[in-house]
Amino acid sequence: MLDMLLPSIVDGLLIGVVYGLVAMGLTLIFGIMNVINLAHGPIIALGMFGVYLLFTNTGVNPYLGLLIVAGGGLIFGVIMYFVAVHRVLNAPHLASLLSTFAVNMIIIGAGTVVFSTNFRNVDFSLGAVTFGPVTTTGARVAAAVVALLVTAALYLFLRRTRLGKNIRAVANNRKSAELMGIPSSRVLAISFGIGAMLAAVSGGLLATIQPFTILSGGVYELKSFVIVVLGGLGNPVGALAGGLILGLIEGIVPVFMKTTWVPVLEFALFVLILLVRPQGLFGARQ
């Protein structure tokens, strides 16, 4: 039994860390401006294609490509903030849900025309890695390591830098932050940019470990919802925990029952947690 479980747990933990990063941008944006970014999935998909195109067309190492994708994600997010989010920030929830969904439609529509919906994969192998009885691919280990590094960098950025502190101040109370001279629009735009950047980078990492299409982002957007609710909506560190839980569920459950039951379990858990502990399992109350 343990022989079967151990590899599942390791795989679950590795992908779980990446899942944490996948959801981090979504939860960061929600925590700061109370907006659920429904273009999250397509931005993940753009990150996938960014790394793929850089590697396939110009031979850029995928892990180096991530840096370029990160920059692109940041710029995209800032632009998207001013075009689609800024105006509806104080409107009812439906407005920001629909405006970000409009961006989703635009990306998916254009992406389908340009890239079709055929599967792609980044053909770049890091070989196999063996820890004792467990063997996994180097790409998975690398993805988990990069995801952890990005998470750590985000944490330090929010805690230690001036901009990070401003972001937290605006998240806490936009009005009083403005009174203290923090330019809230600019801070919000940058925060949205960072959220998009995280999504794009996570997409880039996913591209190194599995095949994808322009529509793959949607799957991860749904997973992100589950993760952020597990970890507490608006709590980036909670996202990592939520990601690990989801990764473990996906790793362990198939050992005991059919894989198709995994999503049933995930979404039932998701609704249950929303109902019983809407602040998430780790209770970071706002």
């Binding site: 407005a95 629909l98 405006s99 409009a102 961006v103 989703n104 439609m105 635009i106 529509g109 025309v113």
Partner: peptide, 15 residues
């Protein structure tokens, strides 16, 4: 590109 057009339209209406 119907999805793109619909998206742009939706965005304009919401905004």
């Amino acid at each position: 590109t119907q999805l793109v057009v619909a998206g742009v339209l939706l965005l304009l209406i919401v905004l």
